[in-house]
Design a protein around this nucleic acid. Structure first.
Lengths: 343, 343
DNA sequence: ATACGTTGCCAAAACGCTTTTGCAGATACT
DNA sequence: AGTATCTGCAAAAGCGTTTTGGCAACGTAT
């Protein structure tokens, strides 16, 4: 079978070199901005490469440089696996942003399967670095990776080990903003529907809540959700809070899903939101926007976190800068009907 | 700075060869089951390699074999980006399964950022193959990939091009099962809340609905959702259906999110589900299970689809088998309260 | 015994880059 | 004018595998 058309093979570096009338060394240097070459040659090579549609082989590049061009992203989904469906919104957006940023920088980003702790062996592909999203205490995979000397950035701080640079939402400030908002809208007794304190988010938010209560001289009313993070769990927690003697007049839930559950609970008890009960949550999602009444929610910036984490990791790999500074990402309170009673 | 301990460098193939007293060729052959070597040598090499903790360099392997060890997964999220939050459940499970399967076979799986059609250049990393989940008509990225000769498997059939092997839920059978179920529970007039017919799922399910109506000599009642696929859209569609003259006594929604929206609509109109209105949906999710009443839903098998797609793609890469057969994955109707009226 | 296929293994050549080293020619310094 | 320093580029040496081609040794048929 005679191959009719050489199927548009990708050009090699040698062909670019030949076309540009220089050596492959020069092509490599020009394209990677490495060696000492004149600006003229550099741009010329760039043009030729572009005209030929040259794209360096990731493999060969890796072999030569010792890099793999691969980043791993590991998310610790809160609670047991798929329960927290509302928060997929957050992770998906984060993942998307991270992937784009990585690709733009010539790296591919691999999502590590979450949940499965009983991975026989750490799936033994080798990445150049790892991003751990909302790492939980005692995370095996993280510890292993760290032991191997893998560069790591955490999104949310690692409670086990403070050595990795992190990027994190400013949960303390955000929580206080949300509580101030509820108070400004008339709340006297704000309850918290919290999370099991396994990651820095849950810890920081709860701490901020307690700090706020202390500084306002009110007693904290906390309902800690431990079972799962679903809407059903939020409903159950809210039912308990609201049917207690001297119930709260506002609820702040640490996840949108929980907040939506609280919304159903209120409805069941015949409480009107926002008139009888003010409601706000964290981790803004489309679900919060779509609910009726709309759920006031603290919008985190998953895209910024995803992008930032990749950028930090790449900076670590670069090796040039000694240490990569940690970074807080601002939150923004999106006020909707659930906290806007008629004046 | 004297490096105190050679930091546990991974052994190279040469070291394994030396330790086993054979050539590197033999080691490679033994480990990959390729060349002609005696069973004795093969097991011996395996033992030595294992004792040394040898793990071949993915890069070098790729360079040598021309493979990259990378698969791309591209999902076309239905509707505009993040609207369909309920369906993240489905995609996340699919993605997780696909990633695991890929890793188990020595491949890493990269999720391509979805939605962004205006990707300047197709992010130019090179994968060995691509999985397109629910490809939409006129998908640019898919066409480009196909033109480049990239092996492709689609999850859900590609309406533009029938050449790629596919794996797909048996939507026709599933839809008919769901409709039969509703009819058996007493439904006389079943309405459909459908989707824009841009992918094979939407097309097949709608076609099955129409086929079922025809074979039961009832008139189809279709509400096509075009705006977005959120709960709000489902609610709007259901409100319209239910307030028309001669409204349906059952609704089948093509996404859980839409079904949940229909549930709110019914509640608003004072209709009791399941007593006044039977409800069922497709793409079972945790949200459907958690709602009150529980939403009867057609459970697809995202894990099986993710795993299957990767397996098919790997078989294509293998090159040994001429063509990879297409595959249907069974669905299962999960019956909940929304379609279980009191006898 | 002679010719011929097998079998079991190895040496060496890719694979397509990056990086290091080397080497002229140009420029600056004494 | 003579030497030291820069500049711009090329040759060559890896990187750690897979693959190709070949060579003995060992049957097995003639």
């Amino acid at each position: 079978m005679a191959s009719s058309d050489p199927p548009a093979r990708r050009p090699r570096i040698t062909e670019v070199a030949a076309a540009a009338g220089v050596s492959i060394t020069t092509v490599s240097h020009a394209l990677n901005g490495k060696g000492r070459i004149s600006e003229a040659t550099r741009t010329h090579v760039h043009q030729v490469a572009r005209k030929l549609g040259y794209r360096p082989s990731a493999n060969a590049r890796s072999l030569g440089s010792g890099r793999h061009g691969l980043l791993a992203l590991k998310v610790s989904l809160p609670g047991s696996s798929a329960a927290a469906f509302v928060e997929f919104d957050y992770f998906t957006r984060l993942l998307n942003a991270a992937t784009s940023t990585a690709l733009q920088n010539g790296f591919a980003l691999v999502t590590l399967p979450s949940g499965q702790t009983e991975q026989q062996e750490p799936p033994d592909f080798s990445a150049d670095g790892m991003i751990a999203v909302d790492p939980e205490r005692g995370d095996e995979a993280l510890a292993t990776a760290r032991k191997r000397g893998l560069p790591i950035v955490t999104a949310g701080r690692d409670r086990d080990d403070g050595t990795s640079p992190w990027i994190d939402s400013d949960h303390r400030h955000g929580t206080i903003t949300a509580l101030d908002h509820l108070a400004a809208r008339g709340a006297r007794r704000i309850a918290l529907i919290g999370l099991e304190r396994v990651n820095s988010f849950a810890i920081d938010a709860a701490a901020a809540y307690e700090e706020w209560c202390a500084s306002h001289s009110v007693e904290p009313i906390e309902s800690q959700v431990v079972t799962d993070y679903s809407q059903a769990a939020g409903r159950a927690a809210a039912l308990e809070l609201l049917s207690a003697p001297n119930p709260p007049d506002a609820i702040y839930a640490l996840l949108d899903g929980l907040g939506l559950g609280a919304l159903s609970a209120a409805r069941e008890l015949g409480l009107r939101v926002p008139d009888d009960l003010l409601l706000a949550a964290c981790t803004d999602s489309t679900a919060a926007a779509a609910s009726d009444p709309g759920l006031t929610s603290l919008s985190l910036a998953p895209e910024e976190i995803g992008t930032g984490a990749v950028e930090m990791l790449l900076k670590m790999l670069d090796g040039s800068s000694a240490t990569v500074p940690n970074r807080y990402v601002a939150t923004e309170l999106v006020v909707r009907r659930s906290s806007s009673p008629a004046a």
